[in-house]
């Protein structure tokens, strides 16, 4: 084993050392492993993803029976919906000629297509439920009270955006269930005071559900509403920190 720079038993450690001392590793991580409280806090503050999160969370605030992790579950479901949704977009065309057949093909001929579709479906139902339960939890624990009242407002907006994503997704399979459900919504929009007709045409792009409605709902579903949700979620998480950290049980 003369060609090895170190004895075989030291090889894993030597590889580890060389990777961590490499220029690429150091440029990526900049600092070493944070093994003390100060460095750990510094990394949470300095990391673009982690900085939204409070550096320190009180132990009794993350007790499972206090938060039930409902906000975290909602976010996880949103991530699952994003990933599975992007995968579904590879096999779905929002046209009245193709939409229904594309969904049938996804369920029957595409490998893992049915799995992705059902993950998307159940995660969507779950997200509506978990966002609603999260709001209930915040209400019953009084976590909406000052100084957190504006985060409650953002949260309610997120609830409506969630409903919007769920509703717009309902039409996309272009089956009888979706078409008539959305037709009912079209009727609702018509009852808007003063400008019902205009609201109908603006939201649905037509006087009855057709290709234009499908395209509008598709664009709202895959980019419009998720983009709004992502921005609002960032602010929602960040404000937890800005408003003095997560609320704690009394």
């Amino acid at each position: 084993m003369a060609f090895l720079p170190v004895p075989l038993r030291d090889l894993p450690r030597e590889i580890n050392r060389r990777i961590r001392n490499s220029r690429a590793w150091k440029s990526f991580f900049r600092s070493g492993y944070p093994d003390n409280r100060k460095d750990q806090a510094q990394i949470v503050i300095g990391n673009v993803f982690l900085h939204l999160h409070p550096v320190k969370v009180p132990t009794n605030a993350i007790r499972i029976t206090y938060t039930y992790c409902l906000g975290g579950i909602s976010f996880l479901l949103f991530l699952i919906l994003t990933i599975t949704g992007v995968l579904l977009m590879f096999y779905y065309v929002p046209s009245v000629e193709r939409a229904y057949n594309d969904i049938q093909a996804l369920s029957t001929t595409v490998a893992f297509g049915q799995l992705m579709r059902n993950l998307h479906r159940w995660a969507a139902h779950g997200m509506v439920l978990s966002v609603f339960l999260h709001m209930m939890r915040v209400f019953y624990t009084g976590a909406y009270k000052p100084p957190r009242e504006f985060n409650w407002v953002i949260g309610v907006t997120l609830l409506f955006v969630t409903f919007g994503m769920s509703y717009t997704g309902y039409l996309l399979p272009w089956d009888q269930l979706g078409i008539w459900a959305i037709t009912i919504g079209l009727g609702f929009a018509g009852y808007t005071p003063f400008f019902g007709e205009q609201a109908k045409q603006l939201i649905f792009g037509a006087l009855e559900i057709n290709q234009d409605s499908l395209l509008r709902f598709y664009v709202l579903h895959v980019i419009g509403l998720p983009l709004v949700a992502a921005v609002l979620m960032s602010v929602h998480f960040w404000r937890i920190r800005r408003d003095g950290g997560i609320s704690t049980p009394l």
Partner: peptide, 10 residues
């Protein structure tokens, strides 16, 4: 691997 199978065209 699953992604490869998923994206492989029929």
């Amino acid at each position: 691997g699953a992604a490869l199978v998923f994206f492989w065209p029929k």
